[in-house]
Simulated scan of single mutants.
Amino acid sequence: MHLHLLQHSPHQGPARLADWLSSMGHSHTVFHLDAGETPPRLTDCDALVVLDGPVGPLDDTAQPWLKRERKLIARALDSHKPLLGIGFGARLIAEELGAVVSRGTQAETGWHRVVLAPESPLDLPEQFNAFMWHREVFALPEDALPLGSSEASPLQGFSWDARRVVGLLCHLEATRESVEALLANEPLLDGSERSPHIQSSEAMFADPQRFIHLAPLLDRLLSQWLRSPAG
């Protein structure tokens, strides 16, 4: 399979997701619509991934490239091809599906426990630790099923159209290197000083095994997503 990836920041790339694609024999191309690149054609790929990116409101006026990206996501939703959104990408997909996207009550960064929703169609552990970096959240789109929740965020993701479309607030693709790049180049999220769900950089790297444990979770999720009945 060949996948198109939409990236919005040099410091928020596909990380372990790219390694997984290569290990499974899939190819991928990365596009940067925010840098003025022309949107890719869906006919040239088997699946689309929309990566994390800017924080704050989804403002088409301040970010004119967003209109082109929204159109591409809308076409992907109308197609039969798998669509995955992470962080910012999940927000765009949720909004395109009619869900409310807004600022969360508190910022959430570092490692937090996700409790799988009983109705989630994704075969994942009932509880697992995932990396977080967000302030914005989204409501559950109509006809979608919830992934699960964390203490700070009641909805950590969703699936739609028999798992063909998946949106993740949490980051299963994170690696030590990707988190180091994030911390070195991105400002702290607004409200971090007041949130009890913010971890220090020391705490984020205290247990290297956490990054290793993400690998099988990412494998399970991506394998199910690409094998979705509607895909």
Rank of each mutant, 00 (worst) to 15 (best):
R210L: 15
S22V: 15
L21T: 02
R41M: 10
L92F: 13
F205W: 07
Q209N: 13
L221N: 04
D59K: 01
P57F: 11
S120L: 01
D207E: 14
W111N: 03
L189H: 01
L51T: 07
M132G: 03
E37F: 01
A162Q: 14
I93P: 05
D46A: 13
L83T: 10
S223L: 13
P10E: 03
A206Y: 07
G89A: 09
V101F: 07
Q209C: 08
W111C: 07
W20R: 12
S22E: 14
V49P: 08
L116A: 12
P121W: 00
L172Q: 11
L155T: 01
S23T: 14
N129R: 11
R103A: 14
V179D: 05
S22T: 15
P208G: 12
E136F: 14
P229Q: 05
P64F: 01
A47H: 03
I86R: 08
L218K: 09
A76Q: 12
G191N: 08
R70M: 08
A76C: 12
L145V: 04
R135K: 11
L217I: 13
V165F: 04
H197A: 09
Q224H: 04
E95L: 10
D190L: 12
E180A: 03
V137T: 15
E151P: 00
L116T: 09
D190A: 14
H26P: 01
R103Q: 14
G13I: 04
L48S: 01
D190M: 12
P141F: 02
D207F: 12
H112W: 13
E108V: 10
G231N: 11
A117R: 01
F128L: 12
L33E: 00
L122H: 06
K81I: 15
D190G: 09
A47K: 02
L221I: 04
R194W: 09
G104Q: 03
F131T: 09
H112V: 10
H8P: 07
V100H: 14
P229S: 05
D34E: 02
V101Q: 11
S159R: 01
L189R: 03
V100W: 14
K81S: 14
P208Q: 11
C170T: 05
S102Q: 15
F138D: 05
L172A: 06
D78N: 15
S22W: 13
H2W: 09
V55G: 15
E69T: 07
V115C: 07
Q156F: 05
S120C: 13
A107Q: 11
Q199A: 10
H32T: 06
S159H: 00
G157L: 08
